[in-house]
Amino acid sequence: MNSFSWIIWLIAVLGALSATRNPLHLILILLILGLMTKIIKYDRKDNLVPISFFPFFLLIILTAAVFNALLSHVGSTILFFIPGNVVLISGPITLEAIVYGATNGLILSGIFLSFSIFNQSLSAKTIIRMIPKAFYPLALIITIAINFLPSIRHRLEEIRQAQAIRGHQLRNIGDYASLFLPLLIDSLERSMQLAESMTSRGFVPYQLQSTTPHNRFVIITGMIFFIAGWIVQLSNGNHYAYGLSLLGLFMIIFWFLWISKQIPQSTYKREKWSWLDVIISVIFLSGLCVYIIPLPFIDHQILIYNAYPTVILPDFDIIVGCVSLCFLIPAFINRGPAHDLVSKR
């Protein structure tokens, strides 16, 4: 699948996750993402996140639920009271606060899982290519960080074993110092080696020349339009203000592309759009539209579920549920490393 189709997929999933607070729909999206992790053929063989997802998400959801229950005492279904005068904590613990917090946890888990799938499905080089050249040093840092993660995980395990054979046991927080200090020192040493290697191969971050009045005008106007549109929409709810923000956004993107041309750098392989990529990108965008645009055949009140003031069982919209299945498409069409699918030049 084309990298830009992947970006559209990510935007669609993130959009869907932020457009609904209905626990049933959130669970469905999580299940879809979980299923993807099982059947998709990743481009990257290394597991970037050294955890198993299910217990991790359970922890996130529980933490979010407990945290919200302790801090928010709103809701009509009181389960018990925390006595005393502890600031923020003392007061009634409500079922609504727990459900609201757990819903936050579901959204956070979905965001984490979708980014994880995105990262593992694209090679480091592909991610770099998608970032405008004006941000190349930043993109490179991100790439190096992504590549470092598995090796850090591997080193941490080596250090744990090396300390274990000195009789080291993790009894208190201070004991973690013997794991993290060698890891920190080792990572710094490796960073220096990498910097030295990059320098010896002639890598020097390109300094942008001073910008001309024209491109200064474009970026400043673009930012003003973007912020002004946002403020107008927030103040009087005028949906046309989105258009102003969108215009500003286009001007900012145009500026980045313009500036990027200054940077003397070539691209060895460019990805080609196929008809399949176009079709599935349109499908992802349509899926997103179902979540965010008020369409006549969809009851958006189901998506805008709120646990407060009294928790009720959430409804489930079968059409939205079916549309959500489109997020599963990459699992069936990603045919292994994207590298083999791209055309030369």
Binding site: N147, Q265, S266, Y268, K269, R345
Partner: peptide, 30 residues
């Protein structure tokens, strides 16, 4: 210049990308 530990001098995760990295930086044609 080639360093002692090969693992610590790679930037990319694939062989071809690693070799292309330096050439792209010098803006050589594809």
């Amino acid at each position: 210049f080639v360093f002692q530990d090969p693992e610590s001098q790679f930037i990319m995760d694939q062989v071809e990308d690693e070799i292309a990295f330096v050439l792209e930086n010098f803006a050589l044609p594809p």
